[in-house]
Amino acid sequence: MTIRVVVADDQELVRAGFAMIVAAQSDMEVVAESGDGFEAVGAARAHHPDVVLLDIRMPGMDGIEAARIICDETNSRVIMLTTWGQDDYLFDALCAGASGFLLKDVRRDDLVHAVRVVAAGDSLLAPSITRTLIAAFTSGTAVRPPRSERLDVLTARERETMRLLTTGLSNAEIATAMVVSEHTVKTHVSNVLTKLGLRDRVQAVIAAYETGLVVPGRLTN
């Protein structure tokens, strides 16, 4: 199966570089290149790509708004690209529906890996981005509203699985912590995503904070 990709960046050389890396893979195809958010949205609507590599800062419509529209209107998954490890728009980008967040100086192999991971339905963050995300939550700077009734549809085990997702554990590690099989954990994760209408594990982590399931500063396994 060929992974269809749209590459969107306002810098032509950067855009061409990413497109070249993607196109060189036997299992990937660049179906369109875009220079701004409007073009990226149009390309996603027209070509129905599996993955959109989307620069977070572009003229006209920025990457965050483009990601929000693409994730709302299509089944395409978005990987946000940025020059800065401490990007002010990190939380907005993730809440917009992005499934990945990478720095533009990402290594070739890591970029290709990210596209494959996200296309397969999982999520991926650069290590430095993950550290930024966790640091903001643990310091309390990422403010979230009080607990809501949104999680009432989950069973106790599904809530526990969702809480453990916020610690960055793999399915195997969650299985060990909960003393269940890895298959059972996969089922719980799938149920959490389906019941809450979430796209992937990143969105589940965000929802855990938004609903008050996890309190900033209390990240424990």
Rank of each mutant, 00 (worst) to 15 (best):
G85E: 13
G85F: 00
G85A: 14
Q86E: 15
Q86K: 08
D87P: 02
D88Y: 02
D88R: 06
F91I: 09
F91A: 00
F91Q: 01
D92T: 01
A93I: 04
A93E: 03
A93L: 02
L94W: 07
L94G: 01
L94E: 02
L94A: 01
C95Q: 06
G97A: 02
G97D: 05
S99F: 00
G100C: 08
F101Y: 15
F101H: 08
L102I: 06
L102R: 04
D105P: 03
V106G: 01
R107M: 11
R107E: 15
D109T: 10
D109E: 15
D109P: 07
D110K: 08
D110Q: 10
D110P: 03
L111W: 01
L111V: 06
L111S: 05
L111E: 05
L111C: 04
H113F: 12
V115N: 02
V115W: 01
R116P: 10
R116C: 13
R116E: 13
R116V: 09
V118D: 08
A119T: 06
A119M: 07
A120E: 11
A120H: 08
G121N: 07
D122L: 04
L124I: 14
L125Q: 08
L125M: 14
A126W: 00
A126M: 07
P127F: 01
S128L: 12
S128W: 00
S128D: 14
S128N: 11
I129R: 07
T130F: 05
R131P: 01
T132I: 07
L133I: 03
A135V: 06
A135W: 00
A135E: 12
A135S: 13
F137P: 00
F137R: 02
F137H: 09
S139K: 09
G140P: 07
G140Q: 10
T141N: 08
A142G: 03
V143C: 03
V143Q: 08
V143K: 12
V143L: 13
R144M: 13
R144G: 03
P145M: 10
P145I: 09
P146N: 11
P146G: 11
R147C: 12
E149S: 13
E149T: 12
E149A: 14
L151W: 04
L151Q: 01
D152E: 12
D152F: 15
D152N: 10
V153I: 13
T155D: 10
T155F: 03
T155S: 15
A156E: 15
R157P: 02
E158P: 01
R159D: 04
R159T: 11
T161S: 12
T161L: 08
R163Y: 10
L164W: 00
L164V: 10
L164F: 00
T166E: 08
T166R: 02
T166L: 04
T167V: 14
G168L: 09
G168E: 10
S170H: 09
S170N: 02
S170G: 06
N171H: 12
N171R: 09
A172S: 13
A172N: 05
A172G: 09
A172E: 14
A172H: 04
E173V: 05
E173D: 11
T176C: 07
A177R: 11
V179W: 11
V179G: 07
S181H: 11
E182H: 08
